[in-house]
Structure formats: structure tokens, C-alpha cells
Design a protein around this nucleic acid. Sequence first.
DNA 1: GAGACCGACGTTTTT
DNA 2: CGTCGGTCTC
Length: 653
Amino acid sequence: MKKYILREPPKQAALDSFRAAYQSSLNEQQFQVATAPDGPALVIAGAGSGKTRTLIYRLAWLVHCGVKPESILLLTFTRRAAQEMLKRAAELLDERCRRVSGGTFHSVAAAILRRYGKALGLSSSFTILDRSDAEDVIQLLRGELGLSEKGKRFPKKGTLSDLFSKVQNKLLTLDEAVEAEYYHFTDQIELIRSLFIRYQKYKTDRHLVDYDDLLVDLYALLSEHASIREALAEQYKHLLVDEYQDTNKIQGEIVRLLGRDGRVMAVGDDAQSIYSFRGADFQNILRFPQFFPGTQVYKLEENYRSTQAVLDLANTVIAESKQQYPKRLFTRKQGGMKPALVRAQEESEQSRFVAQKILELREEGIPLSEIAVLFRSSFHSFDLEIELARRNLPFEKRGGFKLVETAHVKDVMSHLRILANPSDAVSWNRLLLLIPGIGPRTSQKMIAKMLQEGREALRGFARGAQAEPIQRLLEMLTQAEGADSVTGRIERVMEYYLPLMKNKYDDHPKRTKDLEHLLLISERYRNLSRFLSDLALEPDASIVDVAPADADQEKLVLSTIHSAKGLEWRVVFILWALDGYFPSIYSFTHEAELEEERRLMYVAITRAKEQLYLSYPIRVFHRASHAVLTKPSRFIEPVPEEILEPWVLSEEG
DNA sequence: GAGACCGACGTTTTT
DNA sequence: CGTCGGTCTC
């Protein structure tokens, strides 16, 4: 009989040495999470509870136990978050952590699909469509269907795109999605369905992939191709998912398939779920234990970020919401300045207050980089931006419009995209329409012909006034292809495009600067598809990264609350805490949406470490609804003065 | 078929 | 106030 020796799990010695080295860096709850055994784990991490820190040590622990860094997959909400985490883990603990695989669901999906997508009939040179590209396609098909009959209300491209997105992200049928969100279009559902089918086919035929397709296709790959799933399971032995409360149904399924053997750790906070508009469902976090039987649930409840005074307000605001995982946040930073509720007469007074206060704080020695101004919607800061500029206060704005989404940048990108994917009809259409005399009809004809016969077919259209521009376009494309760098290609495109742009826009000097910025970004890339993918998947990280030139200058941050997720500052201002602005008037009638706005307020408040100012202008007329808004946000209105102190402004002179 | 012009209309957050 | 869609003219 053969004797087989069972070995002790190798963990005890590792645990002892790890504890010796790092115990003082973590509290006991965090330490338990970092060193949790291999099975499925769910970590409910309250705001400011050192979640990132814990994840970093988790990575270190796995590496410490001999797990190959490459076989750990870290899924985060933005790629910046992943890079930041890997960098910190490498600096703090173990250089090998840098080799951990990390990214967003979308970027990881794109990488996997480029490699294995063939199994689904997907070309590896597919182009990623951003939201507005997707809408362009829908618009085109909408026209082709002959839907523009008078009198009939048919959903607009934005609505359709949103609807299709919900179908994909929430794994609904079209009927279910219409029923749930767009009941008033039920009678048009067959037309919508045929448009949806055409849209899918249009993309497939031209190697185009929208954001949702990335997830849907990855899901299909994992669920339908066992061998690929095995290969990926072999490659990624440990799965760490951050911000789990903001995953949607299909992402949940992807995690389930990728983490089949149970080596999955999901981290999140149901109280901070703020992405339901794009299909996120914090029920995912509640269902996790059912997805993964034997799940161990951990909680991080000690807040290290904020003073008790800030936390009191946060707790009061969130207490009204029905949290599913009860937890009690506490801090050892007793006391602190009471959060202020500042009433201003009008928007300009609010702006002046914020600017003046920031100047005072800087006098007191708080650097601008430790101050942030947060708001519900990007446009809420317009007036303040002017005020800050007037007072020479440097700031960086996050959220809202992206450089990559501006028309001129998209114009240039479209020329590059057809080099990477010649069947990218969306880009062809965009760049052909730039040529005077070519409109939608001609453009479609040209594209149809080129899809059959290749780019040179364009010569067949080079007649009359169009002969010369078409000739120049073709020459430029050939030159760009011959260029030896991504930057070189963009330069060729710009030589061609700038004259067109100067004709099209009055403000071309500013736009030229943007394009020069694009050149700068491109210098870091050697591979065109990679450049295009990155810009599509992370439209603003690339901008921030490029800023080292003026990195020495201290800057204030203006940010949407959504973009401030996971970050912290010593002093936080929240603008427009006015009922109707925040929560938005459009959420009033839907309980679930109001609840999400409440969580959004909670996220905003918990960004502050020491000082918090909420302000609202009184007497605001809301045009669309003809309502006069006069009250502070309903989330803070009932808060007692011991917790939120009212301030009234008065002007000198 | 392209592009100028006019009237209607209206949420916002992001991969 | 700015964008969108539809109509009209060249």
C-alpha cells in the first residue's frame, strides 16, 4: 500500500512572519482580511476604513505566500485605481506586486477578447466605440429604418442607446427593459427590436465593439467556451474585485465564471453604490454569498479618515437609508470642526464664499492639493471656475466632458482608427463628412464600396470638386501608415486636418492646443491599437498622467462626486446642496433614485477628513419645471444644529 | 444631395 | 442657452 503524506498547509510559518512584519500597519479586522484563506470572501468596507490599504496588503500576502503576481487579477473601477494600488503595493511591500494583472472590467475584457475573441468570430483588430460613436451608429440606422414619419414618437438615439445598454448590462430581454424603464414606448417595441438587431449586426460586420459588448462578449466567451475559461482560470488563480457595489449583473456573472474555484475576494460598501444609472446593482453584493457558497463575510468598520464631527453628519444622512449590511462606523479622531451649512443669496455669492474660504485656508497653511470642491453635476461648478480664475487659484477639474470626447479630437482619432481597422465605418463616416461637398448620402455610398473593395475604391469618387481633397486624403493615409511611430501618424493626420478644422471652428487656436496635447499623450505609445483602446477605455486618465510638467504647482480639485469616489481631502466643499439640484428634481418621483442620491451625498460627505462645508444658493428658479427652489437638500435639512451648523453670509461694504 | 436656417425642447453621473 | 431635428433652397 502506498503511503501518502498530507502536508500541513504552508500558511502557519508564512502567517507568523507576515504578522511580525506588518501587524502594526493593520488593525485586526484588516489583518484578517489581508490574510484570509483561499475561499470566497466578501469584505464590507465602510467609507474611509482603509479598504485600499487592506487590499494592498492582501496582494502582498498572496505574493508572500508564493502566488505568482501575474496570476492575481485585480479588477477596479478605474484603471488609475488599479495602477495606484499596484504602485503602492510595490513601494510599500514587495516589488513583485507591480506585476499583478489589473484593470477595469472593460479593459481586462478588451485584452482577453483581443487574444481569444476569435472563438466568437471577433477580429483581434476590433475598434471600441465610445458612447457617442455608438449613438452615431444608432442614429444612422434609425434613419435607414424610415422611422422619421411624422406624428410618431420614436425614442431618440440617446434613449435607444441607454435602453440597449440596460439590456446588456442587466441581462434583460428587450421586452423586460422597455417594460421596466420605458413603458411609454411599449407600442413601438417591434421597431425598437429590429433596430437593436440591426445595430448588433452592423457592429459585428465592421469589427466594432461598444462598451457593453466588451462585457457581453467576455461573458459569452467564458460561458460558451469551456477550454478558454479553463485557460483563464489557470492564468488568473486569484481574483480581487474592488467597488463591488457598483458592478452590474453581467459583471457579477463574469466574476462568478472567472472565480469558479472560489478564490475570489470582493470588496465594497452597499452604502456607496452610486452607479445604478449604468446598470449597477448593489444587490450583487448581497447575492455574493449565494453565488459563492461558503463565503466568509468580513467587515471593516473603523474609519481612519474623518473626524467624529464629519462622521456624525455622514451617519445621520445614511441612517435614513435601508442598508442591507448593517455596520457601525466609528473613529478615534474625536471632535473636529462642525460641518457648516452655508446659505448664500445667489450662485455668485456661493462662488465668492468658496473662493475666499479657500484663500483663507491656504493662508492657514493648508495646501491647495488638500482641498476639493465637489458637486452633483459637472456644470454646477461653471460659475466657481470663473471666480477661481479671477483670483488666480489654480484648479484641476475632474468629471464631465473629456478631451477625447471633443469633436476635433474625435475627428483626428477617426483617421487613426481606420488605419487600425479599415472596416470601421463609424470613423470613415466621420472623416468623409469633413470634406466639403460630401454629405451623409455620398459618404454611405463610398463606405459601402470601400468595405467591398478596399480603400482605393475611394478614387472612383474623385471627380469634380472632390477630386483634389480625396486625392489628398488617400495620400495622407498612405503617409501616415508609413510613419514609424504613433506620434508620427498623428502628425501626418494633423497636417491634413488642421486646415479643415480652421474652416470649421472659430475657436481653432484652442482646439489646436488640445491636439498638441494629444500628440504629447501619444508619445508614450508604440502601438496604435493600444493607444486607441486606452483612450476609448479610460478617456481621462491619460490626460491626468501627462501633467508632470506643472505637477509642482499645487492645485485645487473640482470634481463631480462620481469622479471623487475613493478619494479624500482635508477640506471638502459641497456645492449646490439645494433641494432640486441635489437631490436632482428628476429623482423626486422615484424612491430608488432618491435613495441613490442619498448615497451620493454620503459619498461626498465621507471624502472629508477635517473640514466640511455644504453650501446652497437660495431662491433658484428651475426653468424646466417652473419650480422655485428655496430649501437645502432634504438629506441635510432635518439634521440638528449640533451636527450641522448653519452659517449666514454677510458682505462687507 | 448638401448645407443653411428655424423652431422646439430640456437631467445628470461614466466604462 | 445650446443642441437637435425638420424643412427649405441652391
